[in-house]
Design a protein around this nucleic acid. Structure first.
Lengths: 104, 104
DNA sequence: TTAACATATAGATTTTTTTCAATATGAGGT
DNA sequence: ACCTCATATTGAAAAAAATCTATATGTTAA
């Protein structure tokens, strides 16, 4: 019961940090190597690693390993899930908005 | 420049707390008085007040005052803004996904 | 197999967020 | 004017998240 909300907050928490939004913006132009992301952000390498873990953990970003390098890209499936979740959470049901006055 | 990301994180932070997701779910069936939300959540009155401030500050929720009571409801405009922002952040541009290998 | 490099993990510190108790504000009703 | 009720604000404590340094892991190349 509690875990339903906890799981959902994880998706939105991925979008709730300035550095992660910058990372997403960089990934919009396609898959990027961690080292490229790192050199454009003003954070340490372990901090980037931490942010990528959160982005991947939320499903928004996926990784691909190739030798020493790790490439990150935006997940279409993860993005769609997040988008639908947000819309679902903000959909106001019709025919239910009755008894407007306190307390209902 | 920095504030652009800061402003955007505020929107997603609104969705990043379990109690706030519960509140949004309650508001899906229509406008609710603060006292109704309070009795269904396991938090104190000041904590609810704090959460409503964050939800309203993000634009997702709007309030209406009537006498002693405050009624909250989901903002259509705010929701649409959040929804579009999420989609914008996760849109991968075509014809840009070149030079896949490190480092690009 | 050793060295160099890319990324991950551990542990500690700082910052941010959540929470509550106490109190303030503000709007009726008596 | 006073009392009660609904909500907001303040200030402090607890919890969670971000960040760093140091170190570990795993890959490639000499």
């Amino acid at each position: 019961m509690n875990s339903k909300y906890l799981k959902n907050t994880r998706v939105f928490k991925a979008f709730s940090d300035e550095n992660r939004l910058m990372i997403l913006e960089m990934l919009q132009s396609g898959e990027k190597c961690a080292c490229v992301l790192l050199e454009k952000l003003d954070i340490s390498q372990p901090t980037l690693s931490h942010h990528m873990k959160i982005l991947c953990g939320s499903g928004i970003v996926i990784l691909r390993r190739k030798g020493k390098w790790t490439y990150y890209s935006i997940s279409k499936a993860g993005s769609n899930y997040a988008s639908k979740l947000l819309q679902k959470l903000t959909t106001v049901m019709k025919n239910k908005n009755l008894n407007k006055e306190c307390c209902n």
